[in-house]
């Protein structure tokens, strides 16, 4: 399960923000993406996850291997914690949620409505969702927002366990997770602005 990104140009709102991004992520490794606000970390992760097409370049990975987690957790406030987790597990064809519940210490919260959780608890539930996907490459965008130090440690443990099991993780974050991973600073890849959209204006409508 190797993810290879070569000469990627990603665009936000039709304007290239990052260009020439290339890296390889092997299984068992984590890659931490760093860079200032607005540089295009989120855009790059969305492009790699397949939510938007790249302007140029290639993303090579096995089919259906990504689990994507972004700023919003995709939780339904009128469903309980358990129902939320079970829903995502069945979407990904899994049935076991116990591991995810234990990893993020959600046992006491299971019968509660997700709407009644604090921001940090919601985040924990959102991250627990990664464990029920059964996918090997995690793409995480600022996963530690609103987590306390204890939960950050829990999260780092979960990532470590995932890596040890042969998975890999691509993480955009500003804090030090204490992971033994490589760091990619995307600052030097900032687009210089001479890229016109190769497919032209119509591309957005096709």
């Amino acid at each position: 399960m190797t993810l290879t990104v070569s000469d990627l140009i990603v665009a936000r709102g039709g304007i290239a923000v990052l260009e020439g991004v290339s890296f390889t992520l092997k299984s068992g490794r984590a890659l931490v993406i760093r860079g200032p606000n607005g540089i295009g970390k989120t855009t790059m992760l969305r492009t790699i996850a397949g939510l938007q097409p790249p302007m140029a370049g290639k993303v090579d990975a096995p089919e259906e291997s990504f689990a994507y987690a972004a700023h919003s957790d995709g939780l339904k406030s009128m469903l309980s914690v358990e129902e939320n987790l079970r829903f995502w597990a069945s979407v990904f064809g899994q049935s076991d949620i116990d591991g995810a519940v234990q990893a993020f210490d959600l046992e006491d919260l299971l019968p509660r409505l997700a709407g009644a959780l604090s921001a940090g608890q919601k985040r924990r539930l959102g991250l627990a969702r990664l464990l029920v996907t059964g996918r090997s490459i995690w793409i995480l965008d600022e996963p530690t927002v609103s987590l306390d130090t204890q939960s950050v440690a829990r999260f780092a443990d979960a990532v470590r366990a995932h890596l040890a099991a042969g998975g890999s993780a691509l993480i955009a974050t500003h804090i030090d997770l204490g992971l033994e991973g490589d760091v990619l600073d995307v600052g030097p890849f900032k687009a210089t602005g001479h890229h016109a959209d190769p497919a032209g204006f119509d591309e957005s409508f096709l």
Binding site: A70, K76, V91
Partner: peptide, 16 residues
């Protein structure tokens, strides 16, 4: 509603 809470993004990257 699914758009606002990010569910659509996650469903789009799911096997469905």
């Amino acid at each position: 509603l699914d758009w606002e809470d990010g569910t659509l993004d996650l469903v789009a990257t799911s096997p469905l």
